[in-house]
Nucleic acid binder design. Structure first.
Lengths: 168, 168
DNA sequence: TATTGTTATACTCTATAACTATA
DNA sequence: TATAGTTATAGAGTATAACAATA
């Protein structure tokens, strides 16, 4: 914090490599952690993605689920089937378009997502508590920049901007 | 950088939540990026994990692959079958234990992993280039702390310390 | 014609359980 | 007995393709 950073182009090959290694490690442990939390609730990532979208957008058609979740309509049929069997969601016909199905959260589904959101906040607090605010700021700033860069040269093409769920 | 951080306990619920949201977004785009890179090489995550272990440990038994990669021996059989079909690895009998198989990289497998490692460094450099060194330091420091915390209260039990591959 | 959701089919990754051949 | 790897089987998630009902 004392050093003047007049060595701002000093990124070495090795430094870059170990930085990416650490980023991947962070990615890995986070993914394992998220998956573990979902498994404890009896949810897979794919099914949780569907619930997440329903929780934040309200009732939507399977077509929209397909677009937002990022899997084919065929797979949405399977995921909604499973979630319906477990009483997380219900299907009903769209009032204006008789081809389409409207998928909604049941009471159990809503309750599950509310609880999940509480636990999310709780976990977030424990995870970031005690970090010096300035370090947290820098972490968020760098994270944002990395996100932009990865998005940037990760194609800039077929990345659907609609897909913004933190679960998938 | 100028502010004295005498507000070091000021983490709000909202601040924590949005921090975790950003972390998950970073995790997500990184995972997508990694998967895309693997797909371009015709590799899945699971198969790449096996190649990664072989690249870093040399020929190992399927039992060891099972332990390190973190899937059942049955699945190692399947993954090695597929990698053998595609000429990435070969199987031979273990010289001292006729029950066991020794799995090794072929020339193609070695070449693939060398190229992957080059690309890894290349990507790392482009990803982190231009960041002020002090910001990068802070990012790595906070990342390390988050990794420790997630590992810490993500059970502290069934996390096998052998499983340290950045791919799985 | 185009779109919505489904049936049919297939591939990958994952797991458990039973079996074999060796230790 | 215990271990290494396999066969057998099952389930989840993914995909494409063909089809029915509707727009």
């Amino acid at each position: 914090m004392e050093r003047l950073d007049d060595e701002r182009c000093s990124l070495s090959r090795d430094g870059a490599r170990s930085a990416l290694e650490r980023l991947l490690e962070l990615t890995e442990v986070t993914a394992v952690f998220v998956k573990r939390g979902l498994t404890e609730r009896g949810l897979s990532r794919a099914r949780a993605s569907v619930l997440w979208v329903l929780h934040h957008r309200g009732p939507v058609t399977q077509r929209e689920l397909s677009d937002v979740v990022g899997v084919t309509p065929r797979n949405i049929t399977g995921l909604v089937d499973a979630l319906e069997t477990d009483d997380y969601v219900t299907r009903r016909r769209h009032p204006n378009d008789r081809r389409a199905m409207l998928v909604s959260l049941t009471a159990k589904g809503t309750e599950t997502m509310n609880k999940a959101q509480e636990d999310f906040s709780e976990n977030a607090f424990h995870l970031f508590f005690g970090l010096p605010p300035q370090e947290l700021d820098t972490f968020l700033k760098v994270s944002g920049r990395l996100i932009d860069r990865v998005r940037g040269y990760a194609g800039a093409c077929h990345d659907d901007p609609e897909r913004t769920s933190p679960l998938s």
